[in-house]
Write a protein that binds this DNA or RNA. Structure first.
Lengths: 340, 340
DNA sequence: AAGGGTTACGAAAACGGTTTCGTGTTGATA
DNA sequence: TATCAACACGAAACCGTTTTCGTAACCCTT
């Protein structure tokens, strides 16, 4: 087993001081050419690499960024993560991921742990529980310590930091307009509990488009599904009761589940009923019929978030930049569930 | 902005030495009760937390584990990652993820970077390119340095370390047996390039089951698809040429793509043709008809991998344990694509 | 009163680097 | 020959901890 070699080892072996070795390896002008050659050759031979931890301690920067997300087995978050990881890596940063699992406590514990020197900044998306409780003290602690923080997708106005979000309201509005342009009138919304800011905003876009078309909002056209363990009978009852010819779902899973139910009920997609979902994941592409969805461009969001974060990390200390909110524009990808 | 407080700050403020503060916070017997109270109260008030980096340097352990996987936007790897993350977190470890993106170079760069002190051990799955090249020098370097390494799923015999794999051969064998028991005779295999050890092993199971049933292997029943960008016409031609009544696919995407094609060609699933895939992801559950698949229990694999890794990390230095290979048993989840 | 054992704390080294600030040696200059 | 840069290198501080070891101060013993 070859132990890792340190500056001290090289210094001892070559009978020079540690500082000389350090400088020689950085090609400092201070060191004579012979010594430099000797040190560099030795270092190369023994494959010397500086210890990251020692560097971090000295430089007070770890070149690590912390990513805290509610869930990793979830297409959207996964793509955002990829964006973050790619951009960060390319900029020389590593990524430490913590999954909050939609739990407030886990989110708090993870952030506090990482905040003690392990990372230079955070990219986060709030857990469901955090959004429901509206308790952001842990984020306040982070920002008060001067640790840069970027929130994406699941954000909250009460937290002041950089943010990256989708134009949720606008794109939901556009989706409904598309239904309307298609002659659909009875447009339903399938959504989650309202404490999710994104669902809320998508609902706003939905209502806006309807009211603009002078279609009164009808509560019986709105179905709120639980976050997990959706049961089919609820869906069946919803579509059995009201007359519906178009459905906007706030995610692709809801859309696919609803499509399966209405198909079993004998309706034809998109002739009798059209669907648009959010999250352009694999499901949307492969389900039958293929689903028209709003591509949220997760990878792009991740890139943007990482870019903003690293910019802050590397900014001069007292460069008092105001917080920005960047908006990534969704794209409606048309597939079989709407064209007819 | 509240700067992070250090031992030195507390020591200065309370006019005691740094060592006293350190000991007082650890409730050392050495320190008088009054001093302890005073220090602890002060530390609590100012929310003192030890700096992780300094601890890492001192202790020579980071409590970080490195995870290097080929792809993150991929159901199987994502679930494994979740398993790793959950187990590690619960054991007090954080997880640094690097995505090799199926590239050998990225894999090498990432591992070398992390190996310089950033992590206490690795969990990895080999990139496609690494498997194709058969070059494992970077892994050798890691293990030679005494850094624990656990490989999962995409492993190789030439690397000596702990491993976690699926019983690929056996479960593929069982899947084919299931087809046979169902009266199917013309059983196709849809697979990837052979340098993937898992595909290779699944193919072995497939062939074993056939030869056991005295069915000669027919090369025209084997379709090799590229890793990405599958084009439909190739699939169409395959199913148009040979008479096939059952298909084993080495992943769910292939299965879903093939199912879509054969359905368009007018075949009925599962009456005319049955399908079994690997990777029990969301696609399998939601596609029409739902797909019978081999659940690879990614989360379990991740847990097992993390457990083995942490065990090694925390083992006494010279505890010469032999390397182990743990096998996670797949489960065939029956759905509509096979029952009839 | 000298010796011995606690008690309660501090000094310093160590982890592995970087960097500032000397300083001894050399050669050139006056 | 005395002076002075320039050169080439080393000592030491520092980052924030932990931990070993040393040692004042006190009390108790005889």
């Amino acid at each position: 087993m070859k132990r890792k070699i340190t500056l001290k080892d090289i210094a001892r072996e070559l009978e020079v001081s540690i500082s000389t070795v350090s400088k020689a390896l950085k090609n400092s002008e201070e060191i004579g050419i012979d010594t430099k050659d000797k040190v560099q050759a030795f270092a190369k031979l023994y494959n010397y690499r500086p210890n990251n931890i020692a560097l971090s301690l000295k430089n007070k920067r770890t070149k690590n960024i912390g990513v805290v997300i509610p869930d990793i087995v979830h297409y959207f978050f996964t793509t955002v993560f990829r964006g973050i990881e790619q951009y960060s890596n390319q900029k020389g940063y590593n990524v430490i991921v913590c999954v909050s699992d939609e739990s407030f406590d886990k989110e708090v514990i993870n952030t506090e742990l990482l905040a003690n020197g392990s990372i230079d900044g955070f990219v986060m998306s709030l857990s469901a529980e955090t959004q429901r409780k509206g308790d952001f003290h842990h984020l306040l602690e982070i920002t008060e310590q001067g640790i840069p923080l970027v929130l994406f997708d699941r954000v909250d106005d009460k937290v002041s930091c950089d943010k990256v979000i989708l134009n949720d309201t606008e794109i939901a509005y556009q989706a409904v307009k598309k239904f309307l342009a298609n002659g659909r009138k009875n447009i339903a919304l399938v959504t989650t509990e309202s404490y999710f800011n994104v669902s809320e905003k998508r609902a706003e876009g939905y209502e806006e488009a309807l009211s603009e078309a002078n279609i009164p909002a009808r509560p019986e056209l709105k179905l709120v599904l639980p976050f997990r363990d959706v049961n089919e009978s609820e869906i069946r009852q919803f579509f059995g009761t009201a007359k519906i010819d178009a459905v906007l779902c706030v995610n692709e899973i809801f859309a696919v589940q609803c499509m399966a139910v209405v198909q079993k009920m004998g309706m034809k997609i998109p002739d009798d009923i059209a669907f648009i979902g959010f999250t352009d994941g694999i499901l949307s592409k492969y389900v039958q019929p293929t689903l028209t969805t709003v591509a949220q461009h997760g990878e792009r969001m991740g890139e943007v978030a990482a870019e903003m974060l690293i910019e802050r990390i590397e900014a001069e200390i007292d460069e008092e930049k105001p917080f920005r909110t960047k908006i990534v524009e969704g794209t409606i990808i048309e597939r079989e569930s709407t064209v007819n």
